[in-house]
Design a protein around this nucleic acid. Structure first.
Length: 276
DNA sequence: AAAACATGCAACCGCGAATTC
DNA sequence: TGAATTCGCGGTTGCATGTTT
């Protein structure tokens, strides 16, 4: 259907935000909460489009935002998560409390690509840039062909790619046995959370959704972690499971771990990090 | 000292997904 | 059920600042 750009209206300001605008936006959101971005500028007396307000709030004004000085630990985590998730910055940001997707994206584009290249690692594939002498297996060739034929990444293709990467990683070290990859069968429990909900928003507890299954599930959400196709992960474990967002056939392998055991997440996440 | 070039990052844009009506 | 609207994401742009020539 298409819409005209929301900032195209005559009279709306663009470009860098002034201190006055920041204050007006912050005060309004503190009093009225986030959301309703479309009507927010008018109600807050700002000559900005809603999109611009949302962006400013999410990336700059929101409480708890950390700016600059990305630590070595954070950098390592970004690289590892990027290896697993690709350019899905919001998901990566969800694992780095206080960091925004925009900041991580910028950091990746300005620092990490360079750094990885200098280390001889292809930032896209996370593999060595050095020419390989080892031959690919038939399966790897097939998967590689399948994953490069189209631009859009369907669930199936992501699965294949990750399986492929996993196999290749294992082939780099002949002493390590091939790791079986479990493809989690997501359980769609609640629509209260989208697949892009952040770690922070989920750890704060329940949502405002009415009772029933959704609320029960929401109450049990312990945390949020991309447990995508983790090798040696048994997601059928009775103690925890996954909540996928969106249509099941669109499930991207990233979701909430829910459990009645509040310590479960730490356990799962420790295992997860070891596998990265 | 100044012009040219490089870098970093805030902000914008277009699109698809989700939600509302 | 489907059109309209809103939201959120990732890619990209453009400007401010720093560095080199």
């Amino acid at each position: 259907m298409g819409r005209s750009p929301c900032c195209s209206k005559v009279g709306l300001r663009r470009g860098p935000w002034s201190t006055k605008e920041d204050t007006a936006l912050t005060n309004f959101i503190q009093q009225n909460g986030e959301g309703q971005w479309r009507s927010l500028p008018k109600n807050a007396g700002l000559l900005r489009c809603g999109k611009s307000c949302r962006l400013r709030w999410m990336n700059y004004l929101r409480p708890g935002i950390k700016r600059g000085n990305i630590s070595q630990d954070e950098e390592d985590l970004i690289v590892r998560l990027h290896r697993l998730l690709g350019n899905r910055w919001s998901l990566i940001a969800g694992r780095l409390p206080g960091r925004t997707d925009n900041e991580i994206k910028n950091y990746w584009n300005t620092h990490l690509i360079k750094k990885l290249n200098q280390s001889g690692i292809n930032p896209k594939s996370h593999k060595d840039n050095l020419p390989k002498t080892t031959k690919k297996t038939k399966k790897q060739k097939k998967v590689a062909a399948a994953t490069t034929t189209t631009k859009k990444t369907s669930t199936k293709k992501i699965e294949e790619k990750l399986i492929s990467n996993n196999d290749i990683n294992n082939n780099n070290n002949n002493d390590v046995p091939k790791t079986k990859v479990y493809l989690p069968k997501p359980i769609r429990v609640s629509s209260a959370f989208s697949r892009t909900n952040s770690y922070d928003s989920l750890t704060t507890g329940t949502s405002s959704s009415e009772g029933g299954e959704a609320a029960a599930a929401a109450a049990e959400v312990v945390s949020y972690v991309p447990v995508a196709w983790l090798p040696e992960f048994e997601l059928e474990d009775a103690n925890y499971g996954m909540v996928g967002g969106g249509a099941e056939d669109d499930f991207l392998g990233v979701g909430c771990i829910f459990s009645s055991d509040v310590n479960m997440w730490d356990k799962v996440y420790d295992e997860y990090l070891q596998l990265l």
